[in-house]
Design a protein around this nucleic acid. Sequence first.
DNA 1: GGTGGGCGTCGAAGCGCTTCGATGGAGGAA
DNA 2: TTCCTCCATCGAAGCGCTTCGACGCCCACC
Lengths: 336, 336
Amino acid sequence: MVKITDVARHAGVSPSTVSYALSGKRPISEETRQRVEASIRELGYRPHAGARALASSRSNVLALVIPLRTGIHVPVVMQFAVSVVTTARRHDHDVLLLTQEEGEEGLRRVADTALVDAMIVMDVQLDDPRLPLLRSLDRPSVMIGFPAEADGLTCIDLDFKAAGELCVERLAGLGHRVVALVGSPPEVYVRGTAFAQRVVQGFTAAADRNRLASSVHPCEAAPGAAAAVAEQLLREQPALTGVVVHNEPLLEPLIDAFEQLGLRVPADLSVTAICPDELAESVRVPITSVALPAAELGSRAVELLMKKLDGKTVPDATLLAPRLTERASTAPRNAP
Amino acid sequence: MVKITDVARHAGVSPSTVSYALSGKRPISEETRQRVEASIRELGYRPHAGARALASSRSNVLALVIPLRTGIHVPVVMQFAVSVVTTARRHDHDVLLLTQEEGEEGLRRVADTALVDAMIVMDVQLDDPRLPLLRSLDRPSVMIGFPAEADGLTCIDLDFKAAGELCVERLAGLGHRVVALVGSPPEVYVRGTAFAQRVVQGFTAAADRNRLASSVHPCEAAPGAAAAVAEQLLREQPALTGVVVHNEPLLEPLIDAFEQLGLRVPADLSVTAICPDELAESVRVPITSVALPAAELGSRAVELLMKKLDGKTVPDATLLAPRLTERASTAPRNAP
DNA sequence: GGTGGGCGTCGAAGCGCTTCGATGGAGGAA
DNA sequence: TTCCTCCATCGAAGCGCTTCGACGCCCACC
């Protein structure tokens, strides 16, 4: 193994000079740096990660905790993870993969052993048990999602309230006057992933603002429930022409159910959804939708961590603006 | 930060004794170990990963390179990754995530900086450019998949030949006499992921052994191709009653196409496939299939690496036996 | 011409751990 | 009793790097 002393000897300087040439933490003359760099290339020198971590108390590794719970869309998690790795590399960091399964103990372990400098935690719940831990650790972290009480923590997520609003605004813009939200299963609102509630808030706010008649329906995620929901919606709001769906598994069956009831999408009924793009595109009638911007979320999370590691302060909360992709499921009211 | 000298002082022993009590590399009296362990708990001691890595030249971290190419089924990759992490943790190791994108440079970097002790490489191609690199690095690795020339490397994968055979044997056992294989796109066979060819070999061998009439059809993965393929199959083999599909995107459309042509599955035509379980289950007629055992592959790969790190020798090639899951798409020939 | 101040470089200490050789004491064999 | 062995423990060296204080040199300024 070639070490820093070898490089130093080869370049005719001291080891500390090599170190400074590499890190730039002290001025080194242009000429010397050239010589050092040449020696490094020639000898194929690579600093030993462990030695570096020990001496500098920086490992240049981030931890990423990925969720395993069912109901989480796997491709989105993957997209996020890849984006985190890619962005971390741009900042000369690597990524250690932890599973939710290992839980708090895993986080504590990698933090306390100084294996990682900072961590990213996905799938945060309102009353997430990891909150006190993250607060107590001496390393910075970023959470994907918002807990109920985020004091002293840094969070980032899609702005689900704005997403709900955006869906409604789009429908309103197309002339629809009576709209409904088909939401997530009731237990989701209870159990506490905040985003579901935020969608409802946004939906309601935008509907009121536009003076639309509106209703909200939490729904089981079982495809079998679709027919009943569709029927109920039409019974309660016979003039319904716009629907927002925030319930992935129900999306496709719901479209089918509406058509069974004689409503054509989008001619008679416009549908928007908050769901991954792939799902929106794979439905028979491609759905106008707002997607979770997983890649952007990942890279923004890393950027936040890097700033924190640099000792800069960052906003406690970051909300990403939703973007709506127009597809075939929306049309002006009373279109042919 | 509490360090080993703190523990030593607290327990009234020397630092080396603490180290030995922890690693078990030298005998320590029961009484002393108890005392050391108590001190560790009381002080909340955690050995510094960097220091440990530096002194022992073992980082206890594995690298996992995940593929990004399209056409790779994301949930399977995820399953694999989770299994690797879980198994690595059981062996007191962590997992560093690398993307294919970083390529050879990434592997070389983490190996040369001693950031990882060993690595797992997924999605290996016949002429994978990483082969010479893996051979030249001083750290052990395991590859998922078989390249053309695997000398000196350790590989593991599903036994695709046996998988092809198993599908045919099942059909033969049900009395089918005329079978066809709908394979992957032609370029896959050319470009060189060995497994596609292995399936063909297994299919053909088993068909011959059972004296079945058989044919092989590489197919585009576009759903639109299904109708043409189905028609062609029936034209060329009018007595066809058994089909093996090794082409994920084509599976569902193909079933539809056969039914369009008046063949009921499984009454008139039995279908088996090599594909992820979720896909097999999501088709209208659930498909009897052989799945890629991602979780087992992951944990076996880690076990192999651990053995290599212990200096033990392991087999160059490990083939996992396929398992066929019976579903609704197969029936005895001439069943009602 | 003397002096103060950078700039560029060096030397040494030390990060926290593992490991090797040494050591002391207990126990068994002669 | 004496000597040898073996077990449990200790002390010190060193893993490869970063970092801090020190130092010499050159230039500018008076």
